[in-house]
Design a protein around this nucleic acid. Structure first.
Lengths: 138, 138
DNA sequence: TGTAGTTGCTCTAGCCACTAGAGCTTCAAG
DNA sequence: CTTGAAGCTCTAGTGGCTAGAGCAACTACA
């Protein structure tokens, strides 16, 4: 049996966040002790670990809900779980591509001010004038 | 003189978002016509274009507020504007690095299910077990 | 057994950057 | 003069938490 604090320490998920996950039905309500404090079992710990890992991988809580709903019925649903993971991968790759475009743009803008002083600064101008951009970010 | 709809069309910022920017003091309150409708001038249009471009580049509204506050006093403040831009670039690069780590992890997980069928699926297991991960994402 | 300090509880409100909807008024075209 | 689009204000909701108030319960030590 784990206290909420022990769960937090073990998984790295903050205490109010654990309560939040319970509130939105992502974590099953744990039992309580005589003093009304939560006492989690191993299943709760595993579930929270799963959620944490999936969150770190960028899955939304809705994705995670779907993934957890599939659990225990690994079979046909394998396909569904795999699809969620692949769509997340797609998503991440798109975000990387977009951010790389932005990085190039920001580099260009920063180079306009390489000296720093001297009244040469075009940073604000560059930000105000999209037509100077190389690619079509955003 | 531009209506809010014309501003929206010209910049790609949605009408309620323009009102929101005004509400939080990012955009100056425009004049109104006899019927209490907003009428923006060129300065308002330029400001909105600036905000849009900066938002697309990933700047927070607070960053933008700071950048706009510098406007008109390009000189020493050039340094400050440049710093904001560079720190944003740093930020973007960090996000890219993190996402690339995640993409690798998701690729690994997806490969576990390459066939799709056959009861071989380890996607959920992999998500539940961080110790299988190569790097330390998250 | 007492007490101090930590951890737990519930509840409300706030964060960012919008977005949606209700219910109304004003404008522009025909 | 009517119709339909566009405008107005206001409230509430989104995701994923985070912060704080004000209290109760647990734990370690004297």
């Amino acid at each position: 049996m784990y206290t909420i604090g022990a769960m937090s320490k073990a998984t790295g998920v903050k205490v109010p966040t654990i309560r939040y996950y319970e509130e939105i039905g992502l974590l099953d309500e744990p039992g309580r002790n005589a003093g009304n404090q939560r006492r989690f079992d191993q299943a709760g710990m595993d579930a929270l670990g799963f959620i944490k890992h999936a969150r770190d991988l960028g899955f939304s809580l809705d994705d995670i809900r779907a993934l957890m709903g599939l659990d225990g019925q690994l079979g046909d649903d394998c396909v569904e779980a795999d699809q969620i993971a692949r769509s997340q991968l797609e998503n991440v790759r798109e975000r990387i591509a977009k951010l790389e475009q932005l990085a190039r743009e920001l580099e260009r803008i920063s180079h306009l001010c390489d000296g720093g002083n001297g009244g040469c600064c075009k940073v604000l101008t560059a930000l105000g004038d999209h037509s100077q951009c190389a690619g079509d970010h955003g």
